[in-house]
């Protein structure tokens, strides 16, 4: 616990570097392509359109509790944060290896490398969110104050993401094929999370698995507060928070314990 406080203080000391690295990622992407930032919006939008077609026109997945909502929005509300989660993890996994030359030459808190990729992805997410907002206005989806719950839910998601990211970043440095394992894991995880289908379609006897999957709880909670206008299930959210904090603690410990040999192993 003390180590986390010390690390936070170090990061604040090096905040200029963190800002510069986030800025670098954001700017570099924009400069590298013709589509530039348009791609950040195009990606989830295209996914949503095609998946909506596949899962509501071809295969008809009912949205149940949120029946009055078009499937495309039902999907998008869950797909956006899921994409953020998956992208953050994949990107963070390679962040140490990708900055190999920096790690062997200069000292700075290595957690900044992981943090900067996650923050860059959050910026992407914020942009893609604008598409969701436009959609919701266009379809006149009603919202109420409960939507503000999305903010703490978002924080829980980031705690979980950070914990896993630290673990995978450290592991990938030592064994370079971990990133492929992670890619596969995330693809499968998508199906085990109620993104494409509503949570209440899951048969009773399997619900326990979903309770233990923080992303399932998080994604369902987003739907609850944005589309149904309800409060999230506080018990589930608390469990998700607990699991996420545990993940953060474990991930951080793993990251720091191997830190001394990062420069050796590149």
């Amino acid at each position: 616990m003390l180590a986390i406080i010390k690390e936070t203080r170090d990061i604040i000391k090096w905040r200029e570097l963190l800002i510069q690295m986030v800025s670098r990622e954001v700017k570099a992407r924009y400069k590298q392509s013709i589509l530039g930032y348009f791609w950040i919006i195009l990606n989830p939008l295209a996914q949503m359109l095609v998946m909506s077609f596949a899962f509501s026109v071809i295969m008809r997945i009912p949205t149940n509790a949120t029946d009055n909502i078009p499937y495309s929005i039902f999907l998008f509300v869950a797909l956006l944060p899921w994409t953020l989660f998956a992208n953050s993890l994949n990107s963070a996994c390679g962040s140490l290896v990708g900055s190999a030359s920096l790690i062997t030459k200069v000292f700075f808190p290595r957690t900044i490398l992981v943090l900067s990729t996650i923050m860059a992805k959050i910026i992407d997410f914020a942009l893609a969110l604008s598409v969701l907002v436009v959609y919701m206005i266009a379809y006149q989806i009603p919202i109420n104050l409960n939507i503000l719950w999305a903010i703490p839910i978002f924080f829980i998601q980031q705690i979980f993401t950070l914990g896993l990211s630290l673990f995978f970043a450290a592991s990938n440095l030592l064994y370079r094929d971990i990133q492929y394992l992670l890619s596969l894991l995330l693809i499968l995880w998508l199906y085990l999370t109620p993104v494409i289908y509503p949570a209440d379609m899951v048969p009773e006897r399997y619900r326990i698995i979903f309770q233990l999957n923080p992303m399932a709880v998080i994604v369902n909670a987003y739907r609850q507060v944005i589309l149904a206008g309800n409060m999230p299930n506080l018990l589930s959210i608390s469990i998700a928070l607990g699991v996420s904090l545990l993940c953060l603690l474990l991930g951080f410990t793993c990251f720091k314990s191997r830190e001394k040999i990062y420069a050796d192993n590149i």
Partner: peptide
């Protein structure tokens, strides 16, 4: 700015 930050400049 980037390289300066890496070298520890504020």
């Amino acid at each position: 700015y980037l390289n300066g930050a890496i070298l520890g400049l504020k």
